[in-house]
Design a protein around this nucleic acid. Sequence first.
DNA 1: ATACGGAATGTATACGTATACATTCCAGGA
DNA 2: TCCTGGAATGTATACGTATACATTCCGTAT
Lengths: 341, 341
Amino acid sequence: MNQKDIARLAGVSSATVSRVINGDDRVAPKTYEKVKRVIDEYGYVHNAVARNLKKSSTKTIGYLVPDINNPFFTSVLVGFEEMCYAKGYDIIFENTCENVEKEKKSMQTLLSLRVDGLLAVLVDTENKLIDSFDSMGIPIVLIDRKSKNESKHDCIIIDNYDAVKKLVDHLVSLGHTDIATIYGSLDITPGEERLNGFLEAMKQAGIPVNPDYVVPGYFTVEGSYEATEQLLKLKKPPTAIITANNLSTMGAYAALVDHKIRIPQDISLVGIDDFLLAGHLTPPLTVVRRSNTTVGRIAGEMLMDRIEMGSTHKRIPQRIKVLPTELCVRESSGKPRNYTI
Amino acid sequence: MNQKDIARLAGVSSATVSRVINGDDRVAPKTYEKVKRVIDEYGYVHNAVARNLKKSSTKTIGYLVPDINNPFFTSVLVGFEEMCYAKGYDIIFENTCENVEKEKKSMQTLLSLRVDGLLAVLVDTENKLIDSFDSMGIPIVLIDRKSKNESKHDCIIIDNYDAVKKLVDHLVSLGHTDIATIYGSLDITPGEERLNGFLEAMKQAGIPVNPDYVVPGYFTVEGSYEATEQLLKLKKPPTAIITANNLSTMGAYAALVDHKIRIPQDISLVGIDDFLLAGHLTPPLTVVRRSNTTVGRIAGEMLMDRIEMGSTHKRIPQRIKVLPTELCVRESSGKPRNYTI
DNA sequence: ATACGGAATGTATACGTATACATTCCAGGA
DNA sequence: TCCTGGAATGTATACGTATACATTCCGTAT
């Protein structure tokens, strides 16, 4: 059942059917009704595949993230989907599992599927396939992680140095000096910048950094759980811990709870990125936060803005949107203990 | 740049190029290499839109859920994506926001996009568009919520009656009689069955149900937060609360924490469905759980199984997979208090 | 009555691919 | 030498749509 069939049944040409379907106003009301009736009667459903081929546009956008288990990417997806739906775009979902090979295949697929745009959080920011998107004129918006080489793509980030500095300063103002950090993967920008931000903020605060207090958590719950246990095993555990993202915070929290460490009496815990329940844990956690759905919403706007510009979008220079962050003081940060644990 | 261009540049026909791309072994090794080289050199990327039109199959599956903010649906997505990726299917993501109108539009879009299958959690289980999928021979797998009318579609569910009964029996064995439940939306099966299951299990245990102890939480964090506050306002609050899903548990937990109610000393809290952190809260929560990623994985299997059967899949009768649930006793359930709060 | 012009509709084609069918090629057997 | 047959390749078409262009229709002005 296609337009030609409908045309025959309605006694018109297939062009007219196409016009009815696309709401072309150059069709007489009575013809419109007649065709509409036949369409409904026979349950014809428009074939977007053929349309996409003809129009060389798919009204489709790729959403490529490394780990959908991470609630951050889910929240971003919510905002992104909201914008896409409003503008009539559909989302093709790709989960790369932080795997370079899978990322390649996913990007190849999206390319092949002729998505009109791509929202990506890349594992391999030097990925050659990025060039393919460029040469095909498909806009890309990057989130959180920038390409290391001079990238031409729009991106939405936060000031990681500033975010960590807010946490360090907060802890320092409470009297902490034995501050530890559980840092993330250093080969992606947030990991690198948040660690450097920590070191820099400590320097500015005039507090020497204890190398034992700088441990990797790999941005994962498990990694940070273990990192926390490692910190607890020290002869003198830190009085405060700064984590590098939401998962890291969860891991550290779980480890502290499991080891019966009281927060914040024994150890203060603060982190980057808010998450569901973070404000309702015992105690509620102090975090530096941004609006995750806003990230998705702005990404959608920037992307569809470029898409609608057509090929001329290449003339618009890279746009970098730095979202504001806010220190949200709750109860997981307090004065440093003055006893041994 | 298309197959014809590549063909001309390589001095072969477009059919040969197509064969090379599809790995057809009826092409001479040297020809294969020659074509491959031209493809790489010119950065040709295969057009899946055209292929899909020709083959009337898209290697694409719709994933339609009411609320991706719910971690349950995210976990399901993880398992589902895993299976899809393994079999070479891509996912088109639709979030209906529990909105009937949006659900209709989404289904219409998926139909138009000619997805090969659909994994759906429907708001409106009487949706007429389901029939369109049927008549076009596109298989559907339903999760969690069954169609109310006699549905012909595969579905993956749990025994809700049994799940609630496990919680009730657990609480009764601890000595509780003042048991409250925060139930979910009654117009979807899990909501209806879990409430009925509660009433039935209480009956079987010989415990009269206090109508004040049966309050709606609408399967949301906020709704359940308020429901919990409502329970706390009673002259005699319950000694235990059973929640209807993960969000409901979070809401109740947050409310109890915020009102300084001690769990389980003052009130026990148990719920259906596990979630990240549930085992690391203070105290860790007792829940009835299933493997969420398994739900997605099995759904993917059932769906692609039918897809690969082609049109004959209609001859296979409805398959209902009831996943096992397990009572996971942690520390949020204890003996009932013997004092007034 | 005729010409005109805009509205309504029809005709024909291209989008890029996969594949049925046709053709060419070539080695090996008679 | 010719024939045979399988391997390799080419030719032609259909998938379902949107749309440029052509045509028809019909009311109105001349």
